[in-house]
Design a protein around this nucleic acid. Sequence first.
DNA 1: CCGGCCCCTAAGCGCTTGCTCACCCTCGCG
DNA 2: CGCGAGGGTGAGCAAGCGCTTAGGGGCCGG
Lengths: 215, 215
Amino acid sequence: MGTAEETAGGENVPWGEVTPDAARRLLVAAVDAFAERGYHATTTRDIAGRAGMSPAALYIHYKTKEELLHRISRIGHDKALEILEEAADGPGTAAERLADAVRSFVRWHAERHTTARVVQYELDALGPEHRAEIVALRRRTDAAVRRIIGEGVAAGEFDVPDVPGTTLAVLSLCIDVARWFNTQGSRTPDEVGALYADLVLRMVGAGDPALRARG
Amino acid sequence: MGTAEETAGGENVPWGEVTPDAARRLLVAAVDAFAERGYHATTTRDIAGRAGMSPAALYIHYKTKEELLHRISRIGHDKALEILEEAADGPGTAAERLADAVRSFVRWHAERHTTARVVQYELDALGPEHRAEIVALRRRTDAAVRRIIGEGVAAGEFDVPDVPGTTLAVLSLCIDVARWFNTQGSRTPDEVGALYADLVLRMVGAGDPALRARG
DNA sequence: CCGGCCCCTAAGCGCTTGCTCACCCTCGCG
DNA sequence: CGCGAGGGTGAGCAAGCGCTTAGGGGCCGG
């Protein structure tokens, strides 16, 4: 109690783990700028300006612009992975767990699509070591989805001729939500999550379509 | 006969429509560089260097770096749209046309994934008027897919509760191939096309799964 | 009241960027 | 052979980049 985290607004606030306050303001500004223009097109002056600071202030809290991207990418991937693995390790049939995983993963990508866009599409801008670290996290993401699908096939729930390929496609579908979401509007994250969960169950040939529509 | 296009190697060569030769070499170099590093991280010196020319040579054939991106984007979208509309307007049932469209669209994104990456992911780097022009092309892409799905539903071939949403998901799935293809290897464009055609037929609830597997 | 500490800023350094300009080399034609 | 035109180059400009540094202002314990 009385920790910096609580001072910052509790542990469920989006960037609550980033302290002190000035560092978080800079990071949030960087997420917005990176999502809007891309990493390379964003200047450190722009980030500092959005955070209401001078350009030099950035370097008090972060060594380089790349370190900012890495922090964003790391925290974002941790969160996305946590969401997925929680669903993968939950109770229920493979179909229920897969639907749950897709629903929450997609919802996160839609709700926090500016963060997700940076996390998913600016990976190449990281330095070699930082990129390697993030790639390792992504392999765990892949493994979590593959595990659910594999278990569904083993249990006879799913009909999937190509498990690695279908895993890839499912993840690709979910991740790409970050690219297009809210460029049109008119759909809530919950709606997209529900739609995608249904589509993915169809992709793995899970059970009776009529059951899916009702449940 | 004896036109510049034929001199350049015939009309089926990837960038055969770009003349003169030096302009094409620069454009191909730009595609590679943009795909590898992204538009903003690519310098005009890098593009010219890859084409074996001095930095100044670029400006003989293109007014700005952005014009280069626009030319690439325009030609690429034209080609992608042509592929899709050809399949959409072809003969056969809605299921056959949808499978055909997805198969060829995906194959193009895989085979020419460096071009596709630029075309699909560097749109924001275009100036306002050029972007508007490209966005109009993408609406036609969307319309082509939506038409096939709509016709399949009308004919009772498909079971799709949300036609616009499913259209969006199908296109998103195909487009994202450009992002991940060949970062791992081990899959040919034909294989990915076949896999994705099957997955999409499942998404729209087309017919008997057993029939799909045999056909 | 003050001295040290922590954030922060103004100014600017060294470098790279997109792009330009004066000039040259090559080639077809009379 | 002279010549004009068009594709190419070397050098470099103004602007903007990531990042640094010297110094200032507010807060806090003594």
